[in-house]
Amino acid sequence: MTYSMTTQEFVALAMTEPLDVLDLRDPDLFDIKDMKTQSAITRIPLTELTSRYQELDSTKTYYLFSQSGKRAKTMAHFLNENGYQAVNVIGGVKAVMNYLEMFHPDQANTVEHPANDVLSRSLIIIQMVSKKQQQAASDTELV
């Protein structure tokens, strides 16, 4: 299995199906409130993953996020070595948000959410972009 994928690949995949996201950032980097997104977000701080990875479902593929992606790459390898399916999203949370702000600025500016929970905000934007694209496709079919 591939251990890494680009930001663009992640966003494209997240627009087509719900994903299981594993947020490895420290708790002070995200809002603890649950966000309503298509994708499921599991939060296990990086410092706890080696002792808590058995809590994960070994039948699922997890897309790992750290702030910049470097530590998630190491943990993706660790999880894969222990029988889990894990993919590092290159560049981490920062890269996904930068990508969305660059290519989907209209949606990125409409999400009102605490700025410190960038991952949840990113997943909401992906969901919004996906719905907008589906609507445009169905509108095109009607013409």
Rank of each mutant, 00 (worst) to 15 (best):
M75T: 05
I41H: 01
M5V: 13
I124N: 02
G92T: 00
T42C: 03
F103N: 15
A115Q: 13
T50K: 15
T16E: 14
Q133M: 13
N116I: 04
A136Q: 15
I41G: 01
A95F: 02
D28R: 12
V21C: 05
T59I: 09
V93E: 05
Q67V: 04
Y53V: 11
F78Y: 15
T74N: 10
T140P: 01
V11F: 07
I126E: 09
F78P: 10
L56I: 07
T59G: 11
M5K: 13
L79S: 07
M15F: 04
D31Y: 08
L29H: 05
S122A: 15
Y53D: 08
R121V: 02
V118G: 07
R121T: 12
T42P: 01
T47P: 02
L64K: 04
S4W: 04
E112Y: 03
T6C: 12
V118H: 06
Q127Y: 00
N116E: 04
V111N: 01
T6D: 13
F65M: 03
Q85K: 15
D23S: 01
S4E: 13
Q133A: 15
V129N: 09
K131R: 15
L142N: 14
T110F: 08
F10G: 08
G69V: 04
T140S: 14
N98V: 06
A76S: 14
N109M: 06
G83I: 12
S130T: 10
S68F: 02
K60D: 04
L29S: 02
S68A: 05
Q134G: 08
K131Y: 10
S66G: 13
L64N: 04
I90G: 00
Y99I: 03
R25I: 06
